[in-house]
Each structure stands twice: as C-alpha cells, then as structure tokens.
Amino acid sequence: MKNIKISYLLIALVSLAACEDPIDLDLDSGRSQLVVDGFLTNENTIQTIRLTKSADYFANVPTPDENNAQVRVVGPAGVIYNFQTDDNGNFKYNPAANGAFDSIGYAYKLELQYNGIDYISTSVLNPVPNIDSMTVSLEEDEPGSEEGYYTQYYARDIAGREDFYWTKAYKNGSPAYPEDPTFLILSVDAAFGGEGADGLPFILPIRAAITNEEEPFEVGDTSSVELFSLNENVYEFLDQVTIQAQDGGLFSTPPANIRSNILDAAGNEQEEVLGVFSLSAVSRSEIEITP
C-alpha cells in the first residue's frame, strides 16, 4: 500500500494542535530546462506532445512554451510520424495522415532534436483489458464520505505479464477530482504490486476510486472511466509524481528529482531534458445514474 492516507487520519485524531500555514521563502534559482509532456494513445484522435521550459520555483505563472524543436515518432517497420507545433508549445499529429499508433506489443520511438542535440525515448504499446462492467450503488453518509451514488468499474488484469495501469475518472466529462490534480489512480496488475496480484479482478480500492467521496454522483450524472496501459518506467514516473507533488506531514519522504525516461542519442539516461514519453492503449466505459 503506497500512499497510506490513514497516517493523516491518525494524526488528525491525535494532534490537538497541529497546523499548517504558508510561509515566505527565498529559494535559489536554477537554469531552465526543456520539459516533454508526451502522453499518446492508440486512438484515432489528434495526438499531442507538449514542450515547455522549466521556471524558477516561485514563478507562479504557467511555464513558458517551447516551439524550437523537431519532434517525431518512429513506429514499427520504421514508419515516421511527424509532429507540428501550433506555436503554443503543442506539437500535434493527426492519425488521418499515416494512421494511429495501434500495433499492440510493438515499440514506438520518440525522436526529439533540440538545440542541435538528439534525444530519444521508447514506449511499447502494452495491451489493456476491456472494462467488463460498471455498477452504481447508493451509499449513506459516513466519516470521510458524503451521501450519494458511488460507482465502480470491473476489469480483470491480463494474466501472465506484469501490467501497469493508469485509471482516469470523470464526472460529467470533467475530471472527478478537480480540487486535486495530483491524485492519480495507478496500479500494478490487479492491485499495487506483489506476486499474488496477477490475473485477478482489480481490487476494491482501485475499482471504487473513480467516485470522489467528497462529491459522489447524483441522479442524472454520468460517471466515466478511462483505463490506460503504461510501460513500467512511465508508471515509475507517475508514481514519483504523486509522491513529490503530495509531499508533506510527518511521514514525508525526502524530496527527489523525478527520473525522466527521455534518453540521449546513445540510449543512456541524461539530466538535461525532463518529463516523460508514453504510449498507451485505452479502454473506456461510462454509466449514467438513474433512480
């Protein structure tokens, strides 16, 4: 069990007088680096890789776009997919041109050229299980959860391989946890890792995570879920994102830089370009709440 939020419950129960408040700090500044936000899918929709530059920590405005780069993806059998910038840092590719990235089991390679230096990253398109069904039930008020309709989705992990998944939950088409963009539902096989989780149905905490306990559904709402397959290094990246972005409290771990999966031209780890490149297969499902 990774982020054990019970620690917060325990401290809340016990600490009569704990408190958190913002303070002013002067931090050193560091040089700006290129950031790659490249989450692609196997679907027939426009694929976007976003390039930005890192800024000083307290810059407090969206980080600047970067448009001066060459971005392309090379598919199985050497097919080249070029991405074009829209001058706002978003490099786009339309599958209508050369087809979607849909060869399950094959590797797709990102080739990036920036400031005259080449970078690569590889992502294998891993399979994703179908979502078998979704359920709805009416739950009463309880500590930590409001009264309302709670949905779950059912899917079974693909047996015989170690799988990594990212589940995205939506309420009426927008993210189900708008107040906390750092809350990511990540899983390994049917659970959070461990030998016994292969081939089982997804465990309850994952299935039920698609409903926000603070704002469960009402009649007329639509609960939808997207299930993405990930490569192990992308799972590690997102896991580190949740740890670093949610840090705090008695049990915080030492802050650490998140390791990027963008490599240098020779295929070795490098520290100049940050971010991640990922290609996922997607399953979707949704359910409407009816009385």
């Binding site: 680096q33 963009p181 520290e271």
Partner: peptide, 23 residues
C-alpha cells in the same frame, strides 16, 4: 531539508525540481 530550485508542468501538475540534485 531539501528544497527545489525549479518547477515544471506535466499533465496540469506542477512539479518541483532541483537542478543540482542536492540533498
């Protein structure tokens, strides 16, 4: 404590980064 020097954004999340990998 270890403090960051920079920030960057991935999927609408602002992430801290320490350019010197200091501890």
């Amino acid at each position: 404590a270890t403090f960051p020097t920079n920030r960057y954004e991935i999927q609408n999340i602002v992430l801290p980064h320490n350019v010197e990998s200091a501890r």
